[in-house]
Amino acid sequence: MSVHKLEISEQPRASGTPETLGFRPLYRQVKAIFVRRLVDGVWAPGAALPSEGQLAAEIGVSQGTVRKALDELAAENLVVRRQGRGTFVAEHDERRILFQFFKLAPDEGSPRFPDSVVLSVTTGLAREAERAALDLAEGAAVTRIRRLRSFDGAPLIIETLSLPQQLFPGLEDGPIPNNLYSLFAGRYGITIANARERLKAVALADVDAAALGVSPGEPALQIDRVALSLDGTPVEHRLSLCLTQEVHYLSDLR
């Protein structure tokens, strides 16, 4: 593993010294090194990180700088602090997905992860909307997954996921698990770091209403999501149509 050393001193600048254009705080530079290790797979999901002291000595910064960088990664759910055990690379287990990426919660009862049934898996040329969402060139291919998601056997969501085929070769040939983000990380080394969502009220088209077992024109919540990998690359476009008679969208603003 290559050793990164930072050349910017941790000493404070003299009063009146102009800040260098593009200057980033030292802990942010250290954070960028750590993120690159996650992207490159040097630190795999579930792996224990070296101690703060070891990392500080390796990079050539103070332990406090390393701690501040790791604190930011923990706040972004990329690493997990475990009391008395150390810091670990976060995994896309169901609990993390439930609270970070799945925002629908029952009106009554505790939040839970829905069951999924895959209806179809196809490949083809990316459509205009898919190219725009995933930043793909014309002629690029995508894999599309259409699935039905339910609570206690009651249909809740019909959704279509579009994935760049170049990033996920062979995905269409194997079983599609409920926890896709764990599959992305484990098989393809792609960790979903964050996502952008747009919400809109719509009337269900015939085919979507039939899948959900309701009448055409039934109101639904449309969630248009683009998921990004650790380096900011868009890797998934997901269009979800959700019945909200017994659930709500929960966003914890901080």
Rank of each mutant, 00 (worst) to 15 (best):
I145Y: 00
E128H: 08
R144C: 09
T87W: 15
R81S: 07
Q100P: 06
E138C: 04
L134Q: 05
V79T: 14
F88V: 00
L156T: 02
G84I: 04
V142W: 14
H92I: 01
S120F: 09
V142F: 13
L125G: 14
F99L: 07
Q100D: 12
R131T: 10
L119H: 04
R67M: 14
A141H: 13
E91I: 03
S120C: 12
R81P: 04
E76D: 14
E76V: 03
L148K: 15
A133T: 11
L78S: 08
V117Y: 15
I157Y: 02
T65I: 01
G109V: 01
L156E: 06
I97Y: 00
D135Y: 10
V89D: 06
A129S: 08
D71I: 15
P111L: 04
G124P: 11
D135H: 10
R127M: 12
D107M: 06
Q100Y: 06
L104A: 12
R147I: 11
Q63N: 05
E72K: 12
V80P: 00
A132T: 05
G64V: 08
A74W: 07
A133E: 11
A105R: 14
S150F: 04
P106C: 03
L125D: 08
D93I: 05
E72R: 08
L78Y: 10
T123F: 03
D107A: 06
D93E: 11
L156R: 08
R149L: 09
T123K: 04
G124W: 07
A137Y: 14
D152K: 05
R67Q: 10
L156G: 05
D71H: 15
D115L: 01
T143I: 14
A75C: 03
L70E: 01
P114A: 09
P106E: 00
L134Y: 12
L119F: 02
P155K: 06
K103Y: 15
P155S: 10
E130P: 06
V66M: 03
D93N: 15
L119P: 04
E138V: 09
K103I: 08
A75Q: 09
T87C: 13
V121D: 03
T87N: 10
Q100L: 09
R81D: 12
R67D: 11
R149W: 05
E91A: 03
P155Q: 09
A133Q: 13
K103H: 15
T143K: 08
E72G: 06
R95F: 00
R144K: 13
L156N: 05
F102K: 07
A141F: 12
